[in-house]
Design a protein around this nucleic acid. Structure first.
Length: 607
RNA sequence: GCCGACGUAGCUCAGUGGUAGAGCAACGGUUUCGUAAACCGUAGGUCAGGGGUUCAAAUCCCCUCGUCGGCUCCA
């Protein structure tokens, strides 16, 4: 179901009503609770509240119990429209607060003020007297729509608690957000919970450990990954792929240091706009301050600026797999999807205004090539623009407008659809980002292209044009993966660890059946690796020479998601064949074939 | 950083105030095996760290660190 049809659906209304039912239970159980907002969301609903005492997850059982009781009362949910803003205010203060007045109406009054002029101000009212004669009522300022009766809300579960800033602003008070979910049937609810469990098994942090890709150590520090041999191989493979692709397209590799004097960052504007994301500064004995690099761009700019550049030299495309460190807040670190140290597949293009459009299109093309190769199809593009209200940007508005227009023009020309997201620009310019969901449905920004008029200006970059006069180049910042860490984390989840053959850290496992087959297995592996023989291939091969049963070796290599196993016993040695097993379909026996035939098969698969 | 949850052997987990456990992995031995876990044995723990309550703490309380779900922020 897509977003639009979901928002029109009964399920969406049901969840919205479930949020109200939860709020009703909360007002009864916690007198004095201040209600803020409670919308339906992608997989359920939440309500933000302010309570006098901190809520705990152990309170959920009591809240759910009361919700069930209130549901059974069969309260009719009725829509009421206030005749005027004043009347609406009266309802909020007198009825919504159930006599507690202004003390609990704080957020609702603010929401009322935010209802645009001319729009209906509606309330949803649910009430009933129970068998003991107690009157229950809940009326809430709300656009709706809702279901007809609380009786319809039967299959729900409270999921988690979180702090959430009022109106999403850190400067505001932090409220308590209660997340829940609701479905039309018990089966669907259980299916959803089951799917959550399944998604957890695809989590890159779990697979990363099981498959030996990467690890973290508290002695190294949060968000600082240690890459294990298989994970490092994966990185090398991805780097090799992209490096070739870039060389083909006229990129030139450069290499720059991990730290630089603070002067570089004063010039770039990082100190003004990026400081809180940088690791603590270092000071040497001469009192020079150094900074661990959070971005590669100023370094590439220094290389550009080191010589007089002619328009004949442009475009210049400097590429670097540049490792950067950013001091992410402690609660924000998420495995390798959000780390404190990560490597960008970075490049900076210095172009003339005439070249901008073509170069931008060239970058989008390389991104498409990358996505296709990696098999990522489920992504969306987002144009991050400047938030006019924020002061976290550098440069003149004219530059911003020109850069934003350039991106839109290029996208239109390529027929690329995108959504505009104000406030998601980089501090120096607007950007086009690719957004992909992880196993748990969270959005992550992956590849990015950014058009930048501002850093060239700050650094006074020039090239000599045909007219013999200095002109200012435009920069394109771009990273098709985004970062190796995030991309590998995401790919791990997309493929549930079963990487495509070209990417798999170990492509082939050779399994000798008994000790007497080990020498032969070693020889075979050496040929497949291209170290001996004339198979004309270079595969990544392991030999499982442990003294274990064949069944066990197969099981463990299958769990390691190794694409092919070659089983080697007396029959094979006699016939000059190997028994080939594919990891597909839970392990498929492809029968005996010659090594040559096997190599032809895998080479074809990798084309 | 903030709100909530969690932290027991290398891994997955059991153990709710009274002598720290299991499976897998490791190690030693036996087995040499044809498509998803051979058999027997051995060893392994400051119960994340620190402080407190108690005759007694893995278990209750406080602090710190780390991890997880969110918020904010981001490749």
């Amino acid at each position: 179901m897509n977003k639009e049809s979901y928002e029109q659906s009964y399920l969406y209304r049901l969840r919205h009503s479930a949020a109200h039912l939860m709020a009703q239970a909360l007002t009864e159980l916690y007198p004095g609770v201040k209600l803020a907002i409670g919308p339906p969301i992608e997989n359920g609903f939440y309500y933000d509240v302010e309570t006098t005492e901190a809520l705990k997850e152990e309170d959920f059982a009591a809240i759910e119990k009361r919700m069930k009781e209130l549901s059974k009362l069969d309260q009719r949910i009725e829509r009421k429209v206030a005749k005027s803003r004043d009347e609406a205010r009266e309802i909020v203060l007198k009825e919504c607060t159930l006599g507690q007045g202004e003390a609990v109406a704080e957020y609702k009054l603010q929401l009322l003020d935010a209802v645009p002029e001319g729009e209906d101000i509606s309330f949803y009212d649910q009430q009933r007297t129970d068998r003991e004669g107690t009157f229950h009522r809940f009326i809430d300022l709300c656009r709706g729509p809702h279901v007809d009766s609380t009786k319809e809300i039967k299959h729900f579960k409270l999921m988690s608690l979180a702090g959430a800033y009022w109106r999403g602003d850190v400067k505001n008070k932090q409220l308590t957000r209660i997340y829940g979910t609701a479905f039309e049937s018990q089966e669907e609810l259980e299916q959803y919970l089951h799917n959550l469990e399944e998604a957890r098994r695809r989590d890159h942090r779990i697979l990363g450990k099981e498959l030996g890709l990467f690890m973290f150590s508290p002695r190294v520090g949060p968000g600082l990954a240690l890459w294990l041999p298989k994970g490092a191989q994966l990185r090398e493979t991805m780097i090799e792929f992209l490096r070739d692709e870039q060389l083909k397209r006229g990129y030139e590799p450069v290499i720059t240091p991990q730290i630089a004097s603070i002067k570089l960052y004063e010039k770039s504007g990082h100190i003004l706009t990026f400081r809180e994301k940088m690791f603590p500064f270092m000071e040497d004995e001469e009192k020079e301050t150094y900074i661990l690099k959070p971005m590669n761009c100023p370094f590439h700019i220094e290389i550009y600026a080191s010589q007089i550049r002619s328009y004949r030299d442009l475009p210049i495309r400097y590429a670097e797999f540049g490792t950067v460190h950013r001091y992410e807040q402690s609660g924000e670190v998420t495995g390798i999807l959000r780390a404190r140290g990560f490597t960008q597949d970075d490049a900076h293009l210095f172009v003339t205004p005439d070249q901008l459009l073509d170069e931008f299109i060239g970058v989008v093309d390389i991104m498409n090539t990358v996505l296709r190769k990696l098999g990522l199809t489920d992504f969306r593009a987002r144009l991050g623009t400047k938030d006019p209200k924020s002061d976290k940007y550098v440069g003149h508005d004219d530059n911003w407008v020109a850069a934003t227009n350039a991106i839109m023009e290029a996208c239109d020309k390529m027929g690329m659809e995108y959504e505009i997201s104000p406030g998601d620009a980089a501090f120096y310019g607007p950007k086009l980002d690719l957004i992909i969901k992880d196993a748990l449905g969270r959005d992550w920004q992956m590849g990015t292209v950014q058009v930048d008029y501002n850093l060239p200006e700050r650094f006074g970059l020039e090239y000599i044009a045909e007219d013999g006069k200095p002109h200012r180049p435009i920069m394109i910042h771009r990273a098709p993966f985004g970062s190796l860490e995030r991309m590998i984390g995401l790919l791990t989840e997309q493929y549930a660890g079963a990487f495509p053959l070209w990417l798999a850290p170990v492509q082939v496992a050779v399994l000798p059946i008994a000790d007497r087959h080990v020498d032969h297995a070693m020889d075979l592996a050496s040929q497949l690796k291209g170290y001996s023989g004339d198979l004309g291939t270079k595969l990544r091969v392991s030999v499982d020479d442990r003294r274990e049963t064949l069944g066990k070796k197969i099981r463990e290599n299958q769990l390691q998601k190794i694409p092919y196993m070659l089983i080697l016993g007396d029959k094979d040695i006699e016939n000059g064949t190997v028994g080939v097993r594919s990891r597909e379909e839970g392990g498929k026996d492809l029968g005996a074939m010659t090594l040559q035939a096997f190599v032809e098969m895998v080479e074809k698969e990798m084309d």
